[in-house]
Structure formats: structure tokens, C-alpha cells
Design a protein around this nucleic acid. Sequence first.
RNA 1: UCCUCAGUAGCUCAGUUGGUUAGAGCGGCGGACUGUUAAUCCGUAGGUCGUAGGUUCAAGUCCUACCUGAGGAGCCA
Length: 462
Amino acid sequence: MKRSTVKELLTSTETNRDVRLKGWVRTRRGNNQVAFIAVNDGTIIHSIQVVADLGSFPEETMKRVTTGSSISVTGKLVESMGKGQSVEIQATEIEILGDCDPEEYPLQKKGHSFEFLRENAHLRFRTNTFGAVFRIRHALAFAIHKYYNDKGFFNLHTPIITASDAEGAGAMFKVTTLDLDGAPKNEEGGIDFTQDFFGRPTNLTVSGQLEGELGATALSSIYTFGPTFRAENSNTPRHVAEFWMVEPEMAFYDIHDNMDLAEDFLQYLIQYTLEHCQDDLEFLNKMVDKGLLERLRFVMDNPFERKTYTEAVDILMKSGKKFEFPVHWGLDLQSEHERYLVEQHFKRPVILTDYPRDIKAFYMKQNDDGKTVRAMDVLFPQIGEIIGGSQREERMENLLERMREMNIPEDELWWYLETRKFGTVEHSGFGLGFDRLIMFITGMSNIRDVIPFPRTPKSADF
RNA sequence: UCCUCAGUAGCUCAGUUGGUUAGAGCGGCGGACUGUUAAUCCGUAGGUCGUAGGUUCAAGUCCUACCUGAGGAGCCA
């Protein structure tokens, strides 16, 4: 008989039929007559109840039905006689696929702390919470491709190993095949990278944006979706060394088109999850974050507030609130300022634009005032900046001027500059931190709990 | 990287102003119980108190260093 998944069985309306089920035992209850075995196979958050009359099965087999063991069950799918579930399986055959020694198995019937489960990242997929989180993570990855595909964007695979270290987005991991002991030296006494694999220093990418612009200035609209790496010694619930980013880049888009896209995109993703991951979201809303569903619906239904940086600074200065870092024009906004704007003043997501040029990257388009650039940050409640983007500087003269001011080596980025040299066009783009999006949508408060195998300082197990 | 807090049984924690054989709940194991829902009830085993030094008659408790984790800050996504 063909195996049915728990999802198929629980959503089936056709009862009183023979079925076969395979999965892992979550809990086992019962008395001296009958055993109730909750079996889960990860296809859906719910487990299905298997009922086994003890008289019909060898004691030796039933002894091995322990939490964590894998079993195959044949039996009849019937309406449940007990409360708590609509259908269950009346077992006629039970086969132990894999034993699980309860003395050694780390996961218990009761809940565990997230810290403990992080140390057991290889097994935490078997818990309800992490099952839900990673099913949702999948759904969102799929929704992102669907969204852009439906809009005519092309997915561009930008390199993970990059020779450019000029993006200025943070410390990078070096990539080399040279022996760390006794690496060849050049005449100045430094490492001689001409003998390295690529014949030059290389790193893991911190962003695919610059390469993304090359795609957009030919294909019109592209997006990248891949891993990025930061070698920063950041120890916070929002930072990891390896994370995924979505970076759309569009020719013929100005900053307003860019904002429209960012807002529509985020609302689409929330709506997609609400539609496709109901069970998982309801579980998370109940067990992890009681305000989750309400917050998601609110963000989906309400337009984001759009203000300039200058207006935001004005609001903060007039707020009368005492901040740890006093506000003045020119200061990069701190977490406390962003939170005040989003959570207390506007009480909704906020898009801030036109930041001072001195606190933003070289490639952002300069405004006519000579002071600000066409940057935009989307700020969300609880997690802060979820999107950072800008209209790009398409004027060669202005771009070169900024690069010289900021000591960005022109010769290393010659290929980037040629987009401005040959048929330059207005274009824009942004970066979305995929993992932070998952945090927002699942209500999980630590980024290490939305990544299957998180990489943080001093931690690269599994 | 900085600040704060924490590390005691498999898990979550308690452990008084330093004082004898270090406790609980849950989980495990054994038993009871005719349908359970984190089942319930009875019994039972289980600990080099993060590591290394130090103070003291005496250290889980005080001091120092280090390791690990969490929260906040910075960097940012």
C-alpha cells in the first residue's frame, strides 16, 4: 500500500479506508488496554493519533514505540472516538523503522528552551515550533520567486566569491587556497596573491548589488536571492555571519517606483503566508507571539508612512523625548529613534528617504541640495530596518566625484563604471534581509532560530 | 567589540549572612489504571555545582582569570 502523509490524512474527508503512514513518534499515552501514539511526519504541524489495542501487538514491538522512534503503521482511517481530533488511525500493523533510546534522545514530550534547541539544531526540526518556522521559510522563498517571476523580473545569480572589496558593506571573509603557514610573500613582505587560486585576493560576497546593477541595465528588472556573508563580530539577536538577501534592481525606476515596489512586495509576502501557512501561523501566534497575526494583518492592510530623513529628525527633536543619543541633523538614526518613529509616533511601518549623503554609500543618487541622497530605509516594528535601498547615481561625473571623496578605488570597479559610460539610465534597487523577514512573519525574536544552521561568532557547529 | 546578567540532575530551576549526607517539578525507568490529549496515580535511579587558580578551619555560595550562553549597545540586513 502506498504511504499517505499526515497532511493528506488529516485533510481527507474520506474515512473508513485502509491507509499506511510513516513518521516519527511525538508522544505516547495510554493504559493497559490501549496506546495512543501521536505520529508526525513534518508535512503539517499537526500529528495524527494512532490507536493500538495492546492485545493485538507483541509486547516487544510496543515497547519500542518511544518518543522519537520512527514507525510504519497500517490501519483504518476512522472518525475519532475521543475529543481533540476528528480522525485517527486504528492500527492493524505496526513496524518499527528506527529505534530511539529514550534515555539518550534529547527531545522530550514537554517544551524546551530555544537556547537548548539551538544546541540541538540537528534535531530541532522535529519540534512543532521549528517545523512551523522552516515550513514558513520555504513558503516565503517560493513566494519571492513567484512574486518577481509574475512581475517579469529575472532571477540573476550573482557570484558568491568576489574579487571586489569595495562595496563597503562590512568586514569580509577571505577566500584562499594558500597555506596559512608559509604563504608566499611578495616584495613588500605581504602575501603574494598572484600565486593564489584566482591570482588575486578574493572574499565571500557581502552583497550582490553591484553585479545586480549590471543585469538591470540590460534586462530591465532583475532580482538576486542568495547568501551573503559578513565577518563582523556582531553578537545580537538580529545578526549572523551568513544570511540570505533578496536584492531587486530595476532600470527606469526612480526612488518613488522603488518605494512602491518595496511596499507592495512586503505586503504580498505577508498575504501569501497568511493564505498558505495558516496552521503554522496560528500555532506560532498561540505559542510564541500572541500579537503576531494581528500585527501581520495590520502591516498588510495599512499603507506605509513615507517621510524624509529631515522630517523624521524634526519629529524626533520636537517629540520632547529624552534619547540616549540626542538627535541632530546629520546623525545616523539609532535603534531607539527608529523604534520611536515606528512604534510610538506613526504606529506603522515607515519608509524614510533622502538621508544625509555622508552617512550613506557612494553609489546613491545625489539630490540637488548637495546634502542628501536618494536613499530609502523601510523600518518595521520590533526588528527595525528590514529594507535598505536607493535610487542609484547614474551620472558618471557625480559618481566618480563621490568615489574619490570616499576613497573607493576606481580601477577595481571599472566594470561597474562602464554601466554609466555606455548608455546609462536611471535605476533603483533595494536589499531585503530574508532572515529578518522570517523573524517578522514568524514572531521569532532571535535570528538564530529562523535559520536552519546559523553561523555566528564562535559558533559553526552542524 | 563594549556593558549587564547567567552557567547546579537529561530539561527548567531553587539553594538564606560561606557551615554536615545538594533539593523540586518535568523527563527516564518500574508498577497501577478500559480512550488518552503535556493523561493521571504510586515507586525509583540520576549531580566532579562551566574550567583553572585563590581566600578560609570550611566554598555551589567570596575573589581573579578564562570559556560558553542570553539581553542591551555599536555595525548593519
